[in-house]
Design a protein around this nucleic acid. Sequence first.
DNA 1: CTTGTCTATGCAACGAGTTGCATAGAAAGC
DNA 2: GCTTTCTATGCAACTCGTTGCATAGACAAG
Lengths: 200, 200
Amino acid sequence: MALEHAILVSLLEKPGSGYELARRFERSIGYFWTATHQQIYRVLKRMESEGVLAVREVPQQGRPDKKEYSVAGPGRAALSRWLHEPIEPESLRHDLAVKIRGAAFDDPAALVDEVERHHRVHSDRLARYLAGELRDFTGPDAPAPLDPGQELQHVVLRGGIAYERMTIAWLDDVLATLRALGATTGTGGGPQGGHPGPSA
Amino acid sequence: MALEHAILVSLLEKPGSGYELARRFERSIGYFWTATHQQIYRVLKRMESEGVLAVREVPQQGRPDKKEYSVAGPGRAALSRWLHEPIEPESLRHDLAVKIRGAAFDDPAALVDEVERHHRVHSDRLARYLAGELRDFTGPDAPAPLDPGQELQHVVLRGGIAYERMTIAWLDDVLATLRALGATTGTGGGPQGGHPGPSA
DNA sequence: CTTGTCTATGCAACGAGTTGCATAGAAAGC
DNA sequence: GCTTTCTATGCAACTCGTTGCATAGACAAG
C-alpha cells in the first residue's frame, strides 16, 4: 500500500490534520496520487495505533478542533525501509481507451464530444501545473537556490506536466482519427448520427 | 466498473474463455487495462448470470475443456449505454513519484538503481509496442486498408507508445536530477552512503 | 519417474477504495 | 430567518482488486 507512504512523505514535508492532508491530495500530492478523506482518516487512525504517527490535539477558534499528525521515529524508519524496496512499475488503467476500442461496435462520431471534454480537463490541469511551477520553482518569487526537497518536488511536477502534454497530444490524435472515420461513414453496427464536428 | 466493459469490448473483438481473456489482458488489452484471472472469472460469472454474456462449453483434446463466452444482446446494449455516458478523466497513481519525493528524507542516490530498473521496464514495453505496431498496423504484413476497428486499436496503441516514450524521457530527467543532488552531497537527514553512480 | 510448465477453472480471505450518510459550530449571502 | 459553504471528523456498507491456495490432465525435460 502506497497511500500509507504518500501520507508519510506528505507529513514529513509538513505535519497536518486529516482534513489538511485531504486538501493536499487534491493539489500538489494529487499530481500523482488521489485519496478521499475517508481513506485518509481510516489510515491515519491505523498508523497512529501502530505508533508510526504522533497526534496532537490542536484547539482552534471559530472552527472545530483538529488533530495534527506528525511522523514518529518508527514512521521514518518504515518510510526508509520502503524506499529501499523495489516496487512494481505502474500499469495503466485507462477507461477512455476502452471506450475508444468499444466505439468500433457503436458510433465512433458519438465519442467526439466526450474526447473533447477530456481534452479540456487535461488542458486545465496542464495550466494549473504550469502556474504552480512558475509560483514555486521557476518564477521570480521562487527561492533562488532550491533545496534537495524542492528539486525533487520539481522533477515530480515536471513529470505531471509531461504527462498532461502527452495526453493532450494523444487526444488530438484520437479526435483526428474519430473524425476521419466519421468522414468515410460509420460502420460498426450502431446508429448513425450526423454530427457536425465542433470547432477544434 | 470498467473491467466489465473492457471484457465486453474484448469479447466483441473475439469470443473466448476466461483464460484467454486473462492472456489478452497481459497483451493487447493490457496496454491500457490490467486484471488477474480471478477477477476475470468472477466478473464473467456475474455477467453470465445477468444475461449479458452467453457461454458455450467447448470440449478440447489434450487440454481441459473451456467455456467460451460471447456477448449477448443485452451485453451489446449495456456497452452502448456506457459508451454514451460521460466518464471521469483519469488521475494518476504513481508510486515511484511518491518515492522520489520521499527520497528528500533519505538518501536520494540510493534511488538511482530503482529508477534505472523502471527505465529498463518501460524501454522493453516500448519495444514490444513498436513491434506490435509494425506487425499489426504499419508493417508490410499488415492489412492494407485498415477497417475502423483496426484504426481505433491503432490509435490506442499509439497512446501506449506515447506514454512509454514520455515516461522514459521523464525517468532520464529524474536520473539527472538525482545524480546532480548526489554530486552536491546528500542532505535530507537520512543515512549517507557513498554510492558510485552506475554507468548510465 | 519426478519435477516443472501450460491450459483451464475456481474458492476463501483479505485489503484497498468508493459512496452515502451523520454531526456540528462558524461565517456568509439572500 | 434560511440556506449554503467551509472546517473537521467519523461510521457503515459496499464494490473492487489482490494473494494464496487447490484441482487436474497433458506434455516436456532432466
